[in-house]
């Protein structure tokens, strides 16, 4: 009888499957990679072969160019691929467009690596799918009981109220370029706002890609100045979305008296919001919050819980109290500031 550790094991390059000879989300170049989703710390260029969802393959190609891997192996959700006698199936993780959990099966054992995931509704990607398993490998980005993300609609409501309240100011929303940005745009549309939303140049490609996959983002326009004096006021009363890194940049100076908003699960903690200079923090996360993490463990009913990147100590404590057998994996190389 195979032990779970023989099927998946943490290495410095990432989670490795010795019998299948492949890595899940390797942080440096390997011969064969299974990639859960398109965020840069999980999906790197230069692997020999990449198995991922069609959407993730498209995202990687858009970000790194067509030559990001020698061999692309797109798979649909639920489709099983056999790699050296190991069955690999991708099922939805609900994190961003194309995000998947990796179901690894061999000799009657089922291990599921979640990658990053969330449980709440996201109009831009397929919802998380729960499946019983022997080992569930969970992320723990927001693995503290203080992280309980509020309802998305309330957060979008805060933004739209503020836009109405300060019609002479531009609202600058800092959001990660893949996933978060498109989700916010979609949520803003669902709240009934149908004016043009202005986007930073770095987001154009990914927004186009989301549209190609059928996500309706409504009218988008580049956040560039038209020529001439007074052009700054073009953005008064507008919503502008850009990557958080652009805020410290000259880019942000083109807007009239901007209201800095950051969309992130970290905005739950006021000190973090203040530190980022957020005047309007939007608590919107693509990661599971504490309740989602613990609920998911209950839903998956794993014999063992393995905890990867994030705040594993609190989740370990919870597992002990809940009688769940758990261990931290201490994988390195994944950033948790990208939410």
């Amino acid at each position: 009888m195979a032990k779970p550790d023989d099927i998946l094991t943490p290495t410095r390059k990432g989670l490795y499957c010795p019998p299948g000879d492949f890595f899940i989300d390797p942080v440096s170049a390997v011969d064969r990679a299974v990639v859960t989703h398109g965020h840069a710390d999980h999906a790197r260029a230069g692997h020999g072969a990449v198995l991922a969802t069609t959407e993730t393959i498209a995202i990687m190609a858009a970000r790194y160019g067509g030559g990001f891997t020698a061999s692309r192996q797109p798979a649909a959700y639920g489709e099983t691929t056999r790699i050296n006698g190991v069955d690999v199936t991708l099922i939805p993780a609900g994190h961003v467009l194309g995000s998947a959990q990796v179901v690894v099966e061999r000799a009657g054992k089922r291990l599921i690596a979640s990658g990053d995931y969330k449980r709440r509704r996201d109009p831009t990607c397929a919802p998380f799918e729960a499946m019983p398993c022997d080992v569930f490998i969970t992320e723990a980005t927001f693995g503290l009981p203080v992280f309980r993300h509020p309802d998305d609609r309330g957060e979008i409501g805060k933004l739209l109220t503020s836009v109405r309240r300060f019609p002479e100011r531009a609202h600058l929303v800092g959001a990660y370029a893949l996933g978060k940005a498109q989700r916010i745009i979609r949520l803003i549309r669902e709240a009934g706002y149908d004016e043009a939303i202005y986007i930073h140049g770095a987001m154009q490609k990914l927004c186009d890609l989301y549209r190609d996959f059928g996500v309706d983002l409504g009218p988008l326009a580049p956040a560039t100045l038209s020529d001439g004096a007074g052009a700054k006021n073009d953005f008064a009363g507008r919503i502008v979305i850009g990557p958080p890194s652009a805020f410290a940049d000259k880019w942000a100076r083109r807007f009239p008296d901007p209201v800095p908003c950051f969309a992130s699960g970290w905005m739950r903690v006021r000190a973090r919001a203040k530190q980022r200079g957020a005047e309007l923090p939007l608590i919107l996360s693509d990661h599971a919050d504490w309740d989602e993490l613990t609920e998911t463990v209950r839903d998956m009913e794993p014999r063992e819980l393995w905890i990867t990147h994030g705040r594993e100590d609190a989740l370990m404590r919870w597992a002990t109290l809940a009688g769940v057998k758990a261990r931290p994996l201490s994988l390195v190389g994944y950033e948790d500031e990208n939410d």
């Binding site: 503290l144 009981p145 203080v146 992280f147 309980r148 739950r268 903690v269 006021r270 000190a271 705040r311 100590d313 609190a314 404590r317 919870w318």
Partner: peptide, 18 residues
């Protein structure tokens, strides 16, 4: 769990409220 959280948040009122 409370102490781990308080240590991260750094403010008692905020930790309790969250």
């Amino acid at each position: 769990l409370f102490e781990i959280s308080y240590d991260y948040v750094g403010d008692l009122a905020e930790t309790i409220s969250l």
